[in-house]
Design a binder for these strands. Structure first.
Length: 256
DNA sequence: ATGGTCGGGCTCCGA
């Protein structure tokens, strides 16, 4: 069972790449972020034509998350609990083939410091509380998405160039560790402990050409999912196409 | 070296 996460930076702008990649990579589940469209504008027909179903939470212009799957998408929960005032479309969770999956678009948090960084830390605190409840289910759970956090120096092409950035802030990293240390497995790091594996390259300054990237897209596995972990990686190929997203898919393969 | 380039939606915001 292949589960992937991909920040597409506008699902409508990325329909050709998304459709081609679904056909080539054939994932069982895809967790999308940054749809950048309202529900009514989601390209449902184009995606269904590829053999996938979709559940999603859209929003005008910003954010937006989706779960695509070839099998049924059940028990959908939209929104991260803990703040009824939060209107940003950043969280969707569902069950596919017995695996609980979440598509998460964590706040970027820049400029740092400021209210956007405070919102990021608040969102992380809510995610920490919710993740603890998911672990208690003692089921296979995969928390995938754009976390907007580089967990360690190995996940950044150049820490100096990122000085002061919310993506490498010690408070962001500490919040990430608090979640992981509950008992989650960072799937790509588990399979590739030392590799520089990036999932994002900024559009400007030919960052992809020079492999000046960041690892900010992650798949966290509950122990019951980690038991089944066979392989994990990023698929760099979509990032090299014309009109790419600035992110490329990260994926895990689970036994069964 | 505080620039550069995208996407969305409409003269600038978010990343």
């Amino acid at each position: 069972m292949k589960i992937a996460t991909w920040n597409v930076n506008s699902v409508r702008a990325r329909v050709p790449h998304l459709v081609a990649w679904l056909g080539r990579f054939a994932p069982d589940v895809v967790l999308l972020q940054e749809l950048k469209c309202m529900d009514a504008d989601f390209p449902m027909m184009e995606i269904e034509a590829t053999g996938y179903r979709a559940s999603f939470q859209g929003q005008k212009s910003y954010n937006g998350v989706a779960i695509l799957a070839r099998e049924a998408i059940e028990d959908v929960v939209i929104g991260l609990p803990g703040d009824p005032e939060d209107a940003q479309a950043r969280y969707i969770e569902a069950t596919v083939s017995g695996v609980r999956v979440a598509s998460i678009y964590l706040p970027n948090g820049n400029p740092n410091p400021g209210p956007k960084f405070d919102y990021k830390l608040g969102f992380l605190a809510r995610l920490e509380a919710h993740a603890r409840g998911l672990l208690a289910l003692e089921r296979p759970v995969v928390l995938g998405g754009d976390y907007n956090i580089c967990p360690t120096e190995t996940d950044v092409w150049d820490e100096k160039a990122m000085a002061g950035d919310a993506l490498i802030d010690p408070l962001s990293r500490a919040a990430w560790r608090r979640i992981v240390n509950q008992g989650w497995t960072d799937a790509l790091r588990q399979i590739h402990p030392q590799l520089r594996l990036y999932s994002y390259w900024d559009y400007f300054r030919d960052r992809f050409t020079h492999d000046h990237g960041l690892r900010i897209d992650h798949l966290l596995l509950s122990p019951q999912a980690a038991d089944r972990l066979m392989d994990a990686n990023v698929d760099r190929s979509p990032r090299g196409l014309e009109k790419p997203s600035d992110h490329t898919p990260a994926w895990v393969e689970l036994r069964g």
